[in-house]
């Protein structure tokens, strides 16, 4: 018998569908950048050209095609967003699960470490590290990932504390399953609905933070990202001369991507709540 048909399936709403299409479009844009982009973003044409059929968003101060730059920049922005969010979610989930499941001394130690990390002013620290260390997007993603796990850890811990007292976890302990099996096979699947929105929101936060850092001129000047594009437009006359085709498109891309991520996160939470009501 095929078991697939039994699972409850929830129909997506229009909003969630639109946000998913938007999200996937950006992913495809990053993956297929060399195919979609009309030019190499480093090729030079005549500088400061207005939008035309040849250059859809004109050219920047160096003569690079802005439309191609916009498409290629999605790669760095998305890598930083996903990388930092993935790292923060994995660390936060593991720490939260262990603290909540084992309680007692392990909980006190792990939550003590979490409290210490919570006290660190994160954005100023990222700015200081980005300013003093070699500018690199991977480094920024690494720093953000290693600092932003605290809220995930707290939420996961509280859920794990709640689930560890349920009958099915006690039944699993009574049957003789190992702690690791109970944590990762019984507790973790029951908190995925809490972790997923945290992960999605972390992507959005990381992308905004990366853009802010790049806009402040602390990003990697050799790599192209949406934040870096706005920074270049700001310091090289794009804003003063009102070359909207230079600074507006990356801003719109950041906004739309973050919006799509946030809407998917809400849709996921809503579908989980609906699934619980059905159960």
């Amino acid at each position: 018998m095929n078991c697939r048909h039994i699972k409850n399936r929830l129909l997506p709403t229009n909003t969630s569908l639109c946000s998913l299409v938007l999200f996937l479009s950006f992913l495809l844009m990053a993956l297929l950048a060399p195919v979609i982009a009309p030019y190499d973003p480093y090729i030079r044409f005549e500088p400061y050209r207005s939008p035309s059929l040849e250059h859809l968003l004109g050219t920047n101060d160096l003569g690079n095609d802005i439309f191609s730059e916009l498409i290629y920049s999605s790669r760095v922005s998305l890598i930083v967003g996903f990388g930092a969010a993935l790292m923060a979610t994995i660390i936060g989930t593991v720490i939260g699960l262990f603290a909540g499941y084992f309680k007692g001394t392990p909980d006190e130690i792990l939550m003590g470490i979490t409290d210490i990390f919570l006290m660190i002013p994160q954005i100023p620290l990222i700015i200081i590290l980005a300013a003093f260390l070699m500018p690199s997007f991977y480094l920024i993603a690494l720093i953000m990932g290693s600092l932003w796990w605290t809220s995930t850890a707290r939420v996961v811990r509280s859920k794990a504390l709640q689930i560890r007292e349920t009958s099915f976890v006690e039944a699993a302990r009574s049957l003789g399953f190992s702690d690791m099996h109970i944590i990762f096979s019984d507790i973790l699947p029951n908190i995925v609905h809490v972790i997923t929105p945290k992960f999605l929101m972390a992507i959005a936060s990381a992308m905004i933070a990366e853009s802010s850092i790049s806009f402040l001129g602390l990003g990697d000047p050799t790599a192209k990202s949406w934040g870096m594009m706005i920074n270049f437009a700001f310091i090289r006359g794009g804003f003063i001369n009102d070359y909207w085709w230079w600074y507006l498109p990356p801003g719109i891309c950041i906004t739309l991507f973050v919006l799509s991520v946030v809407l998917i996160s809400y849709a996921f939470e809503e579908s989980e709540e609906a699934a619980l009501r059905i159960e």
């Binding site: 009958s167 699993a172 699947p189 029951n190």
Partner: peptide, 11 residues
């Protein structure tokens, strides 16, 4: 255990 539904992992 007492709670029949709760004795099995809902997922």
């Amino acid at each position: 255990f007492q709670d029949p539904e709760g004795s099995l992992n809902p997922r």
